[in-house]
């Protein structure tokens, strides 16, 4: 585990010296949720919620979407090693594949949690977001979502052969999930067939978990199904990633 920590620390130094990707992942959703907040007032009214201001959907929606975009930090980190020729050096070291990948995804887990906390805090301070349910339940959804994102990033690293592929898979998958999962527009306001597909996306369970806490005032027990399904997705992604991962595969960073 010491070696995994060494890898994680090493990657954090990299992020500290080039913080632009992390800053972008904070600024962009912060700005977007500010601009789209008014649009959700009507939507919430149609869903039967009163005394709301739109932040109840805008903040969790942007948080979920940009959490999955954070997977790009892991794929970039892994494919960068190939581009710098250091992947071979890492594989000649006594580092196990599990230690290497744990070290690679660990900073992402921390960053997704931190990103979610910052966005919710901004929502509270700047957009008057009021959480009706338990804070612990909110953190439980946040933690389950972060684990799911990390597992997703591991899967991307396992299946993509080039950095561009990893980027394309991440963006396309996330956007499809976001649309189908009701992150941008609640599934109740979309066609019925969309609603029947929504449950097959992790973002649906994350978005609805947040809604249960923020709008319906649920506690930990109320979000257990959502947390459970997110954990299920996490296990599925990790299993697929382990199945497909080949540390010796020749991957490309630059083309």
């Amino acid at each position: 585990m010491n070696r995994a920590l060494t890898v994680a620390r090493h990657d954090l130094v990299w992020l500290r010296r080039d913080p632009a990707p992390v800053i972008t992942m904070l600024l962009t959703p912060a700005l977007l949720m500010f601009f789209i907040k008014p649009l959700y007032v009507g939507a919430l009214d149609r869903l039967g919620y009163r005394g709301v201001n739109g932040a109840e959907l805008a903040v969790p929606g942007m948080t979920v979407m940009f959490s999955f975009f954070m997977a790009g930090l892991v794929t970039e980190s892994v494919f960068r090693e190939h581009g710098l020729n250091t992947w071979a050096r890492l594989r000649v070291s006594p580092l196990r594949d599990t230690e290497l990948m744990t070290g690679k995804v660990a900073p992402c887990l921390v960053l997704v949690m931190a990103q979610s906390c910052v966005l919710f805090l901004l929502g509270r301070v700047v957009m008057d977001l009021r959480v009706r349910g338990s804070l612990l339940a909110l953190l439980a959804v946040m933690a389950a979502l972060s684990a799911c994102v990390v597992a997703f990033s591991f899967l991307l690293c396992a299946v993509a052969r080039t950095r561009r592929q990893a980027f394309a898979y991440e963006r396309v998958t996330t956007l499809v999930w976001v649309i189908l999962g009701g992150t941008l527009v609640p599934t109740e306001l979309m066609a019925d067939w969309v609603g029947s597909l929504a449950g097959f996306t992790p973002v649906y369970w994350a978005s609805h978990g947040y809604r249960e806490v923020i709008l319906d005032g649920e506690g930990v027990a109320g979000v257990l199904p959502h947390v459970g399904v997110l954990c299920g997705f996490t296990v599925l992604f990790v299993a697929l990633a382990v199945w497909r991962f080949n540390g010796g595969a020749d991957k490309q960073h630059w083309d």
Partner: peptide
């Protein structure tokens, strides 16, 4: 195969620590 954003010492320490 070195890390351009890391110092000479950090590069050496990283691979030494991994070993």
């Amino acid at each position: 195969a070195v890390y351009p954003t890391h110092t000479v010492e950090e590069n050496l320490r990283f691979f030494g620590a991994l070993a």
